[in-house]
Write a protein that binds this DNA or RNA. Sequence first.
DNA 1: GCCATACGCAACCTCCAGGTTGCACAATAT
DNA 2: ATATTGTGCAACCTGGAGGTTGCGTATGGC
Lengths: 129, 129
Amino acid sequence: MSRRRSSARGARGERHDPLRAGRRQAESLSHFVFAALGDPTRLAIVRRLCYEGPLSISRLAAGGSLTRQAITKHLGVMERARILRSERRGRERLWRIEQARLAEARHYLDVIAKQWDGALGRLKAMVEG
Amino acid sequence: MSRRRSSARGARGERHDPLRAGRRQAESLSHFVFAALGDPTRLAIVRRLCYEGPLSISRLAAGGSLTRQAITKHLGVMERARILRSERRGRERLWRIEQARLAEARHYLDVIAKQWDGALGRLKAMVEG
DNA sequence: GCCATACGCAACCTCCAGGTTGCACAATAT
DNA sequence: ATATTGTGCAACCTGGAGGTTGCGTATGGC
């Protein structure tokens, strides 16, 4: 996730707003998703869930080189980003993918790409016109 | 002298491999892209480039609360992830979006989603059959 | 030539994500 | 009842991401 804004005595005076943040909506929607997917371990987990279906924590941790706790933390992050969803099943907890969420992220990339095309189009028009 | 020194954690022999990494391809292709997009500042930059077209470093830094250097670093990260591409233009350097790269990431999410559906399908078949 | 602009490089600082360890607790198995 | 398995919780530790400052170097306009 994001780094905290540097200390309270931010040297240059102005505070907050990374590049005039804009579109909080888009941020809250996608930035967390991408951040979550940006970690190799997390991506691996997602991939495994995709191949093997819903799995429990210890199942995910078994075999790998990481502690169960480490896995648990990653699952937590992805749950908060709503990429995954958990469901208690007896004494274990099954994790599954929130597929719709991935679709959202996908769509966001679409929008970005389209806007980029638009920007280039306007630019070209200005130069030529 | 960084990793574990005595606690025989990874004494198992196999070093490395987060969740048996698998599909290095997919990782190298998308993990970096997602990581890059996961930072709010970076997402903001991408968004600006999308709206305003190609921009120079100092143009991007102007107005915002971050140093030019900070922006430069972010641009570097995204260049390495091949989300952006630069082009010298006189004494300045114009940055633009590598739109195809976003499409790749998008596609990757597609694949994941499809595989998930498949996994659920197989699971259901096993339970019912 | 001279000055301002647009960068690049490198050292340095801070903080938190990613990892570990240790222990307590709930749900099964036997 | 007891041992075992699957988790949850909390207190650590550490490297590197994200940021800053300072200075050196092209490039363009005058």
